[in-house]
Design a protein around this nucleic acid. Sequence first.
RNA 1: GCGCCUGUAGCUCAGCGGAUAAGAGCAACGGACUUCGGAUCCGUAGGCCGGGGGUUCGAAUCCCUCCAGGCGCGCCA
Length: 560
Amino acid sequence: MIRSRITAALSQALDQTTDLDQQTCKQLAATAGEGLSHPPSRDMGDFATNIALTTAKQAGMKPRELAQAIADRLASSDLPIDRVEVAGPGFINLFMSHHWFTDTLSQILEETECFGQSSRGVGQKLQVEFVSANPVGPIHIGNARGAPFGDALASLLETSGYEVEREYYVNDGPYNTQALNFGRSVRVRYLQALGQDQPLPEDGYQGDYVTEMGQRLTEQVGTQYADLPDDEQTAYHFFRLFEDEILQQAEADCRDFGIEFDVWFTEKSLYDEGDIDREVSSLLERDMAYRQDGAVWLRTGQFGDEKDRVLVRSDGRPTYIAADAAYAANKFARGFDRVVYIFGPDHAGYVPRLQAVLAACGFDLERVEIIVYQNVRMVRGGETVELAKRKGQIYSVRDLIEEVGKDAARFFFLMRSNDSHMDFDLDLAVKQSDENPVYYVQYAHARICSIVRQAESREFAFASEPDLSLLVHSSEMALMSKLADYPHEVESAAQTRAPHQLTTYLRELTQLFHQFYTNCQVLDDSDQATSTARMELVRATRQVLANCLGILGVDAPESM
RNA sequence: GCGCCUGUAGCUCAGCGGAUAAGAGCAACGGACUUCGGAUCCGUAGGCCGGGGGUUCGAAUCCCUCCAGGCGCGCCA
């Protein structure tokens, strides 16, 4: 890869032009190589490094002098560059030679769907846990952002060579408050359907789907469950009656959202398999937990939490913290080198606590990553769409997919950085016009496919060997330059856990393609050689568009 | 009260391990079609990067502080 070659050359040049020792030069060059950028405009060069600015003081030289010295060394190195310029306060701008651009083009066409992959994570097993919505109804919009984010991040990591498992944690433990609330709500609706006058509990679920479940239950079992006592066990029973159905719905929703989980892990299994008891006793044995006021407390206070937390309530029921501890133990026991949690804004405050819990349990926090995404405001007609699951006003992930489509939904969520609070403009997402950025990108891909079809149907006479040196138009150069960026963009997005960088990249790449298309006729009967070369560029662009869209889980249509 | 996140063009947002000339999309205005898909392209206009301090030769970017908004602070998950 060109960046590592430039880094090596910088290291050598620094070593030869300064008094700094070799190790220092290597480190400084590595930092500069990471920060290798593009000059503000293409006529100022293809790559720029600020290494002279950052190391001038250390080297005891003036920035521009040092820059010039390094530039001279680079110019005579074996890098594929035409010339080197020193600019501004001491930037070194590199002008790549033409064959470097066309070599990347050939590389794309050779590696096809593998172009952009790297081996950085090879040999490392990684788990990304996301969505993990409470199984008490349709997956609602509050969890929607984490779905494409987690999925795209997982794909991104796979592209970087990691072995990645996508996991969905199902909060179906016997003491889960949400599940029990839901169970109680179903029971009440069931009894109401049987003609009893019963009020919905304070925190009950008011959605129509609960009422419908209650009615359905009367048809299935009649009065069989009518006399069960109004207690926790009964609530759990009613919850369990519908858990499978809810999970199947969740799985279908995710699938339609383009996501396939490798593992659906249930909290219940932690109880059934004794994981929770084991973890609690182990913590007590190691004195990381203690008994007080009849409850079992975990010493999270020693690990940055405000206070210790209850693991097992005074009545003997474990809390979600016990489940989370056991779950983490289970994850590590499965051999992951690193586990990633994707949390919604409602769990942001839980991050320091979970970290304390994991630390108290003795897990290496270096191997745990918790990524929080911020709230989304759904906007329609300029107004916020109000959502509250318990109130029954449900705008579900399914509703979203049906309203704007999988591709627009995913692309819109992925356009923004995970920690930016975003507005989701439903009106815009559903528009099939130039106002909609999803179609802008997809259109480029379809357009390319159309050119290919066109060439086939009129049996365009291409040259037998493409001569890529004919690609010299500024639009062609800009496009090739962008294509060459792709592997670095992927790696950068993966390392910073920022899939949204790829949507930005896609829009820029697409724009350059459309400009090229406007300026350069691809299929020109009067110039067979140029047409052949341009066709290679077009096919390479299609490949990168498809690869990049693939990571984001957005379709690359052949026509629209 | 404490913690996390955010504040960049009229709107929605990139950029935020400092640096060559603050960006994009939409909205506004003006242009480009007898050729490969006009779901496209070109141009104009629009910003003391929330305010104030500081570090630096250099800050949208780092530090402090204030202001505004979102979210979270349970023997709920």
